[in-house]
Simulated scan of single mutants.
Amino acid sequence: MPELLRQTDAHLGSTPSDVLWGRLPSRRDDPALTVPSGTVLSVDTVSHEGILDDQGGDPVAFFGRHGVPRDGVLVDAVDIARSLRRGPEDGPHVVSRPIAVDGAEPGDVVSVTVLAADPRVPYGVISNRHGRGALPGELPRAETSVSVFADVVSRDGVAHGRLPAVEGGPRVITFPLRPFPGIVGVTPDSDDRAHSVPPGTYGGNVDIALLTAGATLHLPVFVPGAGVYVGDPHFAQGDGEVALTAMEASLRLTLRLDLVPRTAALRRFGELVGPLAETAEYLVPTGLDQDLDEAVRRCVRAAIALLRARWGVDEHIAYAYLSAATDFRISQVVDLVCGSHAMVRKADFAEVGP
């Protein structure tokens, strides 16, 4: 699949020197790029599926078994598998090196808007492994990893993923693609590179499926320059991501990075203690915890704080509104730290004021 080139101010590739494998950047990592607020840039991402050791560590051979020719496998994926090493204690994800936003300081907010998410290949993989899906001990049935290949087809002029209903059989399941980055984050205030799997206050592996083209993730800044990174590209994911991964596949992302100074951020979001997503229709506060019940509680608290800061809503009324009008969804239950997000309709507050 030819890569779509869009007009951008800067570009970060996905060669071995552009990425980390299994870890997030730390404050000791030099930025790969430094850009001013408002910059539009493209970032190539590579899926970890097909390059992991339990899949043979050879993407040409792995995808070749599914009919993908050698020239249909990304050179970047081959080079990463050959030249980078990850230990058993590391995560699976390929993550971009950090991008600094000029002038960003702790206490500010950086807003990462996904302008486009273009497939780099016409296929992906959905995996179940490590006993970390929603049904550990039940699936997979055997102790080996299960990796299900999915290709991309057009249905009524719209790109869909395609799976066999039965392994090797002619009947197929198709579903619409909704490409997005599973990992969007800022650099934690630590000398150590954090594991790539659990999300945190810095974002990271949030796996919020609505972060498709047009959506924004607002993130509190912890280190000078913010150190934005992305990874874990998806072609599609259902809320929950119950099997451990969704349809993982490499993307070229077009992003805009905007700096929101602390005073403006407090007016818009309140004291932001974790990721806050936004679409044209919704503000989407989040909650994260190892326990899903506590993740939902944290999400409710974050939503109340947002309504109070942005629109001056009384606490008990905010709580009542959320109960009557807001859907609380499960982002994912498979990343060691579970995620919940709330869908707050902005139009409901049209008569309250800005």
Rank of each mutant, 00 (worst) to 15 (best):
M1W: 06
P2D: 15
E3F: 14
A10D: 12
L12S: 01
S14E: 03
P16M: 12
P16I: 08
V19E: 07
P25A: 10
S26G: 01
R28N: 13
R28P: 01
D30Q: 14
T34S: 14
P36K: 04
S42L: 06
V43N: 03
V43W: 07
V43A: 07
D44F: 00
E49W: 08
E49N: 08
F62I: 12
R65H: 13
P69A: 12
D71S: 14
V73R: 12
L74Y: 12
V75M: 08
A77L: 04
V78Y: 03
I80Y: 10
R82N: 13
R85P: 04
R86C: 00
G87M: 04
E89Q: 10
D90P: 07
H93D: 08
H93F: 00
V95L: 06
V95Y: 01
S96N: 09
R97L: 09
P98N: 14
I99Q: 01
A100G: 05
D108F: 04
S111N: 12
S111W: 10
T113E: 15
V114D: 02
V114H: 09
L115C: 11
D118G: 00
G124H: 01
R132V: 13
P136F: 08
G137K: 02
F149P: 10
A150D: 02
V152W: 10
R155P: 05
G157Q: 05
A159H: 05
P164N: 15
A165L: 15
V166I: 12
V166M: 09
G169A: 07
P170I: 10
P170L: 10
F175I: 00
P176V: 02
P179F: 03
D189N: 08
D191S: 10
D192Q: 13
R193M: 09
V197M: 05
V197A: 07
Y202L: 03
G203N: 06
G204S: 10
I208W: 00
T216Q: 09
T216F: 05
L217I: 09
L217A: 09
H218L: 00
P220I: 02
F222N: 07
G225I: 06
G231I: 03
H234P: 00
G238I: 06
D239F: 02
G240Q: 06
S250E: 05
R252K: 07
L259V: 03
V260P: 09
P261M: 11
R267S: 15
V273C: 10
A280F: 07
E281D: 11
E281H: 04
Y282K: 02
L283W: 15
V284P: 00
L288N: 09
R298T: 06
R298H: 12
V300Y: 01
R301E: 11
L306W: 00
R308S: 10
W311C: 05
G312W: 13
G312K: 13
Y321A: 11
D327M: 06
F328G: 05
I330K: 05
I330R: 11
Q332N: 11
L336N: 15
L336G: 12
C338D: 14
C338Q: 15
C338A: 15
S340L: 01
S340I: 06
V344D: 01
K346W: 01
D348Y: 02
E351D: 15
